[in-house]
């Protein structure tokens, strides 16, 4: 295929005027997608707001059922992964391909740590019957604590909201790991440079949004 803009770099599609225009268009598309993601999560935050305001005593009793130490650890892990994404973009903007690869791998590993912590949290809840809806059946004793005390009215609804919100967020983390595996491979192959790093930029934006969702989930579910 002949290109009408033969003076353009290889990564520029023929229907864009310049590399800059292509970059801006891709980024604007990403921001539009991020807004749909915000609206997706806002439905769950609305459910949270209504149930919390109707049953504050349930929230007071059950937010202690979530381990703030594990939630806090995961917050730091995700913030760290956002930091490494930002560092990676900084490095590739300066043409440092090795810096990009190292930071992409670190981001992938942080995302993995987040999911491992989440696995331990979920398994403890499943073991003691802290489950959504009809499956809600708190039981068992751990470290001298009787889980039956969590059997409060509207407990099933609290854990429905907890599992749906953290579950869909966790799925986004999993998708993010896939994305970072893909762009790490591309980075190692040498696809990116200071002139072209659009997929890194857009995956980074996605990842920061996943971090922001958790920034709200952590205090709302674990702390208050």
């Amino acid at each position: 295929m002949s290109t009408p803009h033969s003076d353009q770099p290889a990564h520029v599609k023929h229907y864009f005027v310049s590399s800059e225009q292509q970059f801006d268009a891709a980024k604007m598309g990403m921001w539009l997608f991020l807004v749909t993601e915000i609206l997706l999560f806002s439905g769950m935050f609305v459910a949270y707001t209504i149930y919390r305001s109707w049953h504050p005593e349930t929230w007071a009793a059950l937010s202690t059922a979530l381990d703030w130490k594990l939630g806090g650890l995961n917050t730091i892990v995700l913030l760290g992964s956002s930091f490494t994404v930002a560092l990676g973009i900084h490095h590739i903007q300066k043409g440092n391909k090795k810096g990009l690869i190292i930071n992409l791998i670190l981001t992938f590993l942080f995302a993995g740590v987040f999911l491992v912590v989440k696995y331990f949290e979920y398994s403890a809840k499943i073991e003691h019957g802290l489950l959504p809806g009809a499956a809600f059946d708190p039981h068992g004793i751990s470290y001298g604590f009787d889980y039956a005390t969590y059997n409060v009215p509207y407990g099933p609804q609290f854990f429905s909201i907890y599992f749906v919100m953290t579950g869909i967020h966790g799925f986004h983390v999993l998708v993010g790991m896939g994305l970072f595996a893909w762009i790490t491979r591309k980075a190692i192959r040498g696809d990116f440079s200071a002139e072209y790093y659009t997929p890194v930029e857009n995956c980074g934006l996605y990842w920061h949004l996943v971090d922001i969702i958790w920034i709200f989930l952590f205090p709302l579910l674990y702390l208050i």
């Binding site: 980024k27 609206l39 935050f45």
Partner: peptide, 20 residues
């Protein structure tokens, strides 16, 4: 991009406040 995000946030506020 800032306008896109601001409009998105505005609709979240409308969503939550009107339901409340």
């Amino acid at each position: 991009n800032a306008v896109i995000l601001a409009v998105g946030c505005l609709f979240v506020v409308v969503f939550i406040s009107f339901i409340l």
